[in-house]
Structure formats: structure tokens, C-alpha cells
Design a protein around this nucleic acid. Structure first.
Lengths: 190, 190
DNA sequence: CGCCGAGTTGAACTGAATCAAGAAACGTGG
DNA sequence: CCACGTTTCTTGATTCAGTTCAACTCGGCG
């Protein structure tokens, strides 16, 4: 999974002509830890596939930095709210490790959508995935406690606490860093 | 806005051939207050456009009934989580008034997606709208207090408290009915 | 060797949930 | 059309989970 075409094909088949057109608008880039690939207030213009590394989406509330998503390798990042609404984003995106990315202009991608039906079909699938993910996050806040969210996060990405700061995870699961520290103290490992 | 084609055309143009095909799979129906048009655990098979009336999406947590969405006339309802994931839904949908609806089989709609590129493009747009709505709901829980969410809900639908029970609104904004009653006591009207 | 950021731990505080009781609105049948 | 019972809404008192503030530990690094 080191190029965007492979990623897209994991959803649905893609004709060679479409694949070639997508490849033509893909740009591999390397950026280092702490780089902000998107700033709140800007309109998102690019989608990135993470080939290697990790990033987080975050925003500020009352001066406090709240993480809303972690994105790991083999997944795509963008300020989706802005990408889809064409309005300034509420979120910023920060790389938490040195990263290898593949960058695509969303404007160019949309042009390909109108040209290639098979690509637009995948585009629909991508939007659906975004919805489902956002819905799951909503549900996890509605139906589970912070502790349960933390444990579920560990199940998915057991190594996350080793790669990112506790404070980022705490705001992601919806408590203070102090409280998450207490939650961790309750259980044996991690 | 009394048919689905008009609704879809509010997003993007639709060729007459596509419109006709959509019309052919639309069924107008009338159902009365308290009818459950979808039950949690079932896989969602239909999308409904509300021509007249109001509905809510809800689920149970610890035996308590929590409303996650209100849907008013001129908007579409479905158990989106299940519709898109093809898994059993976490939500039920209840009509809160006698309703006129237009019903469409999602299976048939998907068949039309592959046949008509212009429809699939709108389908992508619909999924994006679902994402944006879900994202906004997430943000409102993250960034605002229950009181603020209540006031924002009033701004959008000033007559909602006259049409639905306080308890439903309370669970929607994320507090108990008792607490929402106190919130309302703080302000002048409604 | 001492500083600094990250994490842990303790104590006090606070906002919302819960429990409980009363008031108002609603509708159903006589 | 009224009377009664049920449901909905309000209000008060208590309780509790999580925040805040603050002190302390630990480990890496200049």
C-alpha cells in the first residue's frame, strides 16, 4: 500500500485508464514530525495517504488542545469537514512522527470524478466511510464511558500509547490527562 | 418538494432519463404517529423522504431512550449507519406525527447508481451531507454546552418544543429532562 | 548534575445526575 | 363537558464523577 491507486482499489475495482489518471495527480512527499499539514481556518485543498508515520487532527477549545482523530499508516488524512463543505476547517492536522505521504489535489480528483464513473463510485464509498467513522465516534461518546473508549482504542492500536503523548489520547477519549492517568492506574498493563 | 426527484435535483441537475428511473422506484405512503419505520437490530432497506410530518432516530442506553436526530419535512430519513454498512442498525426510527412519506428501496437505488453516473454523483453528495451533519453533531458535543446546543436547536427549529416532548429534546442535547427544564428556566421564552 | 517535560497522585471543588415530590397538561370515558 | 388518571414538566435536596489546582516522581538530555 504505497500508492493511492492500491488504496482506492481496496474499495472497488478501478479501470487501468482511471488508475493511470489518478497516478498522474499523485505526489509523494516527506515531511517531518510536528509539521502542520493543515491549519484551522484554511480551506482544505489536499488529501494525503500516509505511507509511513502517524498524524492527528485537533482543534482548540478554551485554549486547550483537543485531539479528534489519530490517523495511522495506510489511511488517508484531510480536513474532511472543509474538504467536503468547501468552508474553512475547524481542525488542524499535525504530524506526530516523520512521515512519508502521498498528496493529491482534491480539485483535480473531483475533475476525475466527473470523467470516470468508476472513480466517482469509489468517491461515494469514501464519503460513506467518512460518515460511518464519524457516526461510530458519535456512538462511542454516547454509549460508552471514557474508560471504555480508551480500552477500545487500545484494542485497535495497542501501540498508540507508545507513539503519542498521553495528553493527546486523553483529549481523544474525552477526559483530562489527569483523569486518564487515573483510569490507567486502575488496570494492570499499559 | 413532494417527490424524491425534486429533492435530488436540489443537489445537482439530473437527466430526465435518470429522473424517470428514480420516479419508477418511488412509493408514496402514509403512516401514523408512533409508527416505528425502522427497528434497531434490523438492516435498513429503505430511504424515506418526509413530505409532511416529523420523525426521530433513537436508541436505548441503560434502558433509557436517547434521541440522536430529529428529521422534519423535506428531508430524508433512514438508519444511515445500517444503510451504508449493511450491518444491523443501532437505531430505531419513530414517527412523532402522522406522516406522508415517499419510500425508496435502497437496493434498487444502488442499481440505478451503477447505471446512471449523474445519480451516483448525487449519491456521493448525499453521503457527504450525511458526513457533514454527523461531523457537526460531533463538534457541537465537543465544543458547546448542552445549553448552547439547546439554543442552536431552537434557532434552526423554533417550533420543535411545540411538536415534540421535552424529554426527547433533552436526550438530543445530551442532558436529562430535569436538567433541560432547569436550563429553560434560566431564559425568558420557550 | 540539574533542568524540563511527561506522567502520577492527592485534595478541594463543581456541574450535572439522581431521587423525590408537587403542579400542570392531556385525553379518555362516563 | 366534566372528572379522573396518566403523563409531562418543574423544582428542591443529595450524591457523585470528573475537573482543577498543586505537589511530587521519573527519565532523558543539554
Amino acid at each position: 500500500m504505497n500508492n493511492l491507486v492500491e488504496y482506492l482499489r481496496s474499495f472497488q475495482p478501478l479501470s487501468d485508464a482511471t488508475a493511470e489518471a489518478v497516478l498522474k495527480i499523485s505526489r509523494p512527499i516527506k515531511l517531518e514530525k510536528h509539521h502542520l499539514i493543515h491549519r484551522a481556518g484554511d480551506i482544505c485543498q489536499h488529501i494525503y495517504l500516509i505511507v509511513h508515520g502517524i498524524a492527528r487532527v485537533f482543534y482548540y477549545r478554551d485554549g486547550k488542545d483537543i485531539t479528534s482523530h489519530f490517523i495511522l499508516e495506510r489511511d488517508i488524512i484531510a480536513a474532511m469537514d472543509s474538504l467536503y463543505s468547501r468552508q474553512p476547517s475547524y481542525y488542524s492536522i499535525e504530524l506526530l512522527e516523520d512521515c512519508e505521504l502521498i498528496s493529491v489535489s482534491y480539485r483535480k480528483l473531483e475533475q476525475l470524478y466527473t470523467k470516470f464513473h468508476d472513480l466517482e463510485s469509489i468517491g461515494r464509498r469514501l464519503a460513506i466511510e467518512c460518515y460511518l467513522e464519524e457516526n461510530e465516534r458519535n456512538r462511542s461518546f454516547q454509549m460508552y464511558t471514557a474508560k471504555e473508549r480508551y480500552l477500545q482504542l487500545l484494542e485497535k492500536h495497542y501501540d498508540l500509547p507508545l507513539r503519542v503523548k498521553l495528553g493527546h489520547i486523553a483529549s481523544y477519549v474525552g477526559v483530562t490527562q489527569v483523569q486518564l492517568s487515573r483510569i490507567r492506574a486502575e488496570k494492570v498493563a499499559f
